[in-house]
Simulated scan of single mutants.
Amino acid sequence: MPLAPVDDLSPDAVAGRRRTLLRKALAELVGTALLLATVVGSGVAATRLTPDDVGAQLLYNSVATGAVLTALILALGPVSAAFNPVVTLVERALGALDNRSAAALVAAQCLGGAGGVVLANLMFELPAVSTATTVRSGPGMWLAEVVATFGLVLVVFGVVRTGQTRHVAVAVGAYITAAYWFTSSTSFANPAVTLARTLSDTFAGIAPASVPPFVLAQLAGGAVALLVVRVLHPDPRAAARAVVHHAEEAP
């Protein structure tokens, strides 16, 4: 059902917008929960399977995370599949969401992330919540989070604004898998993920004291990416037409 204009205050229109927002919030909550369950759960499984090989642990963790992101975006994308407050804030800045919707989706992402970590802990018979003790700090890691988040936002909105939405799931999954390896922070690139990972003292955990600089770096990376996206794709419709034109010219 198409949404009624925002200035339509009739009971049916208001109820329709409320239902749509609830559906979007549920998709964000469920998707972020499954994402975090995968990040933390695969980390625990990896350390148990290869306790003396950190490289293998990171490989298992990165492949599982990239794969689940691809699957979740394909499944939930028609409703809502940001799973990341930075992506949602950029959507708001580009006019795709209003303030109320953005706030509701960010809250759902944070709640879902925490729930996913608790589920992962319980599945591996660990305490439901244990405060992470892994310190992740220093200028190199903070820069890595700027770069990781910048790249993620650039990939998401570069693909979407050129009319290639059907490819966004694969693009995001591939980017995150790669970013695990080329960033010193292993690419958290997501404030909801960062906060949630304080709740598990396992391979994927991050100490609470390390969170504020990480989140600030992620917001900075998202802000820079927003500026670049606006310069590269000032008119999404024109960008989409250009992609179609080049595809038609390809041999």
Rank of each mutant, 00 (worst) to 15 (best):
V117T: 13
A120M: 03
Q109K: 08
T134W: 08
C110P: 04
E125C: 04
A120S: 11
G112D: 01
L119E: 05
L119P: 02
L105K: 03
T134R: 15
V106I: 15
Q109M: 06
P127C: 11
V135S: 11
A107K: 01
A102E: 08
A120W: 02
L126P: 07
V135K: 09
V135L: 15
L119G: 02
M123S: 14
L111Q: 02
C110E: 10
L119N: 00
E125F: 10
M123P: 00
G115E: 01
M123I: 15
D98V: 00
R100T: 14
V129H: 08
R100P: 00
A104E: 05
G113R: 05
E125R: 13
L126Y: 12
E125N: 13
P127I: 10
E125H: 15
L105N: 07
M123G: 05
R100M: 09
F124N: 11
G113L: 09
A128V: 07
A132M: 08
V118Y: 01
L122E: 13
L97Y: 13
N121Y: 04
A104S: 14
G113Q: 09
V118C: 05
A103E: 00
L122M: 15
A120R: 10
T131H: 04
V135F: 10
A114Q: 03
A114Y: 01
A132W: 06
D98T: 03
G112R: 00
V135E: 14
N99G: 10
A104G: 09
G113N: 10
A108C: 10
S130K: 11
A103S: 12
S130V: 09
L97W: 06
A104M: 14
C110R: 02
A120H: 04
A104L: 06
A103F: 02
L126T: 05
G116L: 01
R100W: 06
E125I: 03
R100K: 12
A132Q: 08
T134K: 12
L97D: 01
L97K: 02
T133D: 12
L122C: 06
M123K: 01
Q109S: 11
L105H: 04
L105A: 07
A108W: 09
P127N: 11
L111D: 05
T133F: 04
R100A: 15
A107S: 13
A114R: 01
G115D: 02
V117F: 07
G113Y: 09
G116Q: 06
T131F: 11
S101F: 02
A128F: 02
G112A: 05
D98C: 00
V135M: 14
S130D: 14
V135A: 12
A114D: 03
A104C: 11
A102T: 11
V118W: 00
A103Q: 01
A107M: 11
A107I: 13
V135D: 12
G115R: 00
G112H: 05
S130M: 08
F124P: 02
A107W: 03
A128Q: 08
G115N: 02
A128P: 14
Q109N: 13
S101P: 04
G112M: 00
L105P: 04
T134L: 13
F124H: 15
